[in-house]
Design a protein around this nucleic acid. Structure first.
Lengths: 165, 165
DNA sequence: TATTGTTATACTCTATAACTATA
DNA sequence: TATAGTTATAGAGTATAACAATA
């Protein structure tokens, strides 16, 4: 549904984009946002997460849950604090998430033999299977991003960010 | 506070980072997250937003509020729907935010003369001043990001993302 | 019929504090 | 005294549906 022109109600003419087209779709002026890295990073992150959630809708898995499953899968036996620290999330948030993952039968907490305070985390057999399913869907999601961004931009972004992080 | 080594409680040796150091700080294996653009974009976005919020703490302005102020400032007289669409946020969320911005005396809603349904948005005189303050602090924030990421990576990221969005 | 702005609801995320049990 | 895990709370962000007024 094509929108109608938006009225500018002041003598001050609303600035137009540099491309010179008519304001039919009201391409607004981003102003100083054009120079804010956070603005563009946020827009991209939101788009990526939305597509990720849709891609994994059949498993009803959110990005944060996926990242926890991956980390436990690659680091079995680690305590919760180590996982939380590695992902930059709060211990409290992780505890709540693990409750849910355990309820689904995907993760397991075993009392640590070396430190009575900590829980060693593992995936269950079923959790391994679920993770395999997530990885298959996530691969498809990643290939979608590659097409969406263009292979070159995708690779350059990944290299820049990975090198930094 | 240096942490102690984390126990791996299974025969399976926990994978270590490629850098060969001892697992004193338990650098965990990111596994397949190493190939997920969304993971790195999210980590960067969170770091940027945290610093932004701290940098503008004296004004108590959140990133979304700042982006709305900038857009209204550069596109005076636009209706709410146009602002919401340009920023990719919900009309409902914007309505709530404008309530707050209006309460602070920074924005103004005038009934549109051309469309009885819509409100033309403007910054007040005070809003213009507040925005100027935000821009000064945001510039400092942006220069911090440039140092943090390295000037080259900062510029490359901004160019890649801006060109895409 | 469709759109604008609004309100209400629900759910997720985040941040914080307080608590216990261990170290 | 510090840490690990837990619980509870509050706040922000997001998504959705419903509604009145207007187009």
């Amino acid at each position: 549904m094509p929108a109608k022109p938006r009225p500018s109600e002041r003598p001050t003419p609303a600035p137009r984009s540099e491309r010179g087209e008519l304001p039919e779709l009201a391409r607004l002026d981003l102003g100083t946002l054009e120079r804010r890295l956070g603005y563009f990073v946020r827009r991209l992150q939101v788009e990526i997460f939305q597509h990720f959630i849709a891609a994994l809708a059949s498993l009803n898995v959110r990005p944060a849950q996926y990242s926890v499953m991956v980390l436990i899968g690659h680091n079995p036996g680690q305590p919760q604090a180590a996982i939380a620290r590695a992902l930059g999330i709060e211990r409290a948030a992780l505890a709540k998430m693990l409750h849910e993952l355990e309820r689904r039968g995907w993760t397991q907490r075993l009392a640590s033999v070396r430190d009575g305070r900590s829980h060693a985390l593992f995936l269950t057999r079923e959790g391994e299977r679920a993770l395999a399913g997530m990885e298959a869907l996530t691969e498809g999601h990643e290939r979608h991003l590659e097409r969406r961004l263009g292979g070159r931009r995708y690779r350059e972004l990944l290299a820049l960010l990975k090198d930094f992080g």
